[in-house]
Design a protein around this nucleic acid. Structure first.
Length: 273
DNA sequence: GACAACCTGACC
DNA sequence: GGTCAGGTTGTC
């Protein structure tokens, strides 16, 4: 589900709420979501207090004291909900961390692809180090050009390669390529200098809009307070197969193809190879 | 690069 | 019954 704007929205909200709260209990319905296993996690985090919530790419890290951390990846359908213990139950909750002050952190996961994993400080650093530059932090135009120039991969696949650029997923990749008028199957190193600049700006623009609107709630995604984001209202081409190209001066219709096994949407007229 | 796998739900 | 789904990882 969630890409950089969604995960960062959740991180910000949880980082407002969790620090200082203590883990009182761990309730787990499906042991597969807790790695290495629920017992080990219980032993490690019960009695610990949250220090802060970190993020790198789409991976969240809950930091505690004593070299204890909980990595959390939402994958396609994960939700992290900060709730009061008296709030109504949420659907698909597989793991619940009961916290002090009557609070709860609920990990819902319809498809059960997501996970929480115990990690030392060093393991967190290691996990974080696998990722490419963060678009809002250290991804400069110069660096972006270098990444594109060094790869013959199809540009859409490259944008979504977490080891090259952190946090970009299917929605924002599609929309950024549309804004930059670049065909998703064009090989990365064949972009002209001006296309590189357009794509760099388009990528920052869509990710920024995603953040501003607290993410895209196409289906599963909710903020940590259980609310929908707003970026789905701004989708340019994502999910819009058959609809007219949003550019007023273009007669194209949005086409859906598969690129790297993922649904890919583009305008065959204004996005050239 | 293509494809399958992980697992379940939503939609046609 | 079939197809699709915001992601990642491993195999050919």
């Amino acid at each position: 589900m969630p890409e950089l704007p969604e995960v960062e929205t959740i991180r910000r909200e949880l980082d407002e709420e969790l620090p200082g709260l203590e883990v009182k209990d761990v309730i787990c319905k499906d042991a597969r979501l807790l790695k290495p296993d629920p017992k080990v996690i219980e032993n490690a985090i019960i009695g610990e207090r949250f220090l802060e919530v970190d993020r790198r790419a789409k991976l969240l890290a809950f930091r505690f004291t004593n070299d204890v951390n909980l990595l959390c990846h939402l994958r396609m359908s994960g939700r992290l909900l900060f709730r009061d213990q008296d709030d109504p139950e949420d659907t698909y909750v597989e793991v619940k961390l009961k916290l002090s002050e009557g609070k709860e952190l609920r990990f819902a996961n319809a498809r059960k692809f997501g996970y929480m994993q115990l990690a030392s400080d060093e393991e967190v650093q290691k996990a974080f180090a696998k990722y490419g530059p963060e678009p809002f932090d250290d991804l400069t135009l110069e660096k972006f050009k270098e990444i594109l120039g060094g790869s013959r991969a199809m540009i859409k696949n490259l944008l979504m390669d977490q080891s090259k650029i952190a946090g970009v997923g299917n929605i924002y990749a599609n929309d950024a390529l549309f804004l930059a008028k670049i065909h998703p199957e064009k090989s990365a190193n064949s972009l002209s200098a001006s296309q590189q600049v357009s794509l760099f700006e388009a990528l920052k623009k869509v990710l920024w809009e995603g953040l501003e609107t607290k993410g895209a709630s196409d289906q599963w995604y909710r903020t940590a307070h259980g609310e929908k984001g707003g970026y789905q209202e701004l989708f340019r081409v994502y999910g819009k197969a058959g609809q007219p190209c949003p550019r007023k001066d273009c007669d194209g219709r949005i086409k859906r193809i598969k690129v790297g096994g993922r649904g890919t949407f583009y305008c065959p007229i204004c996005q050239n190879k």
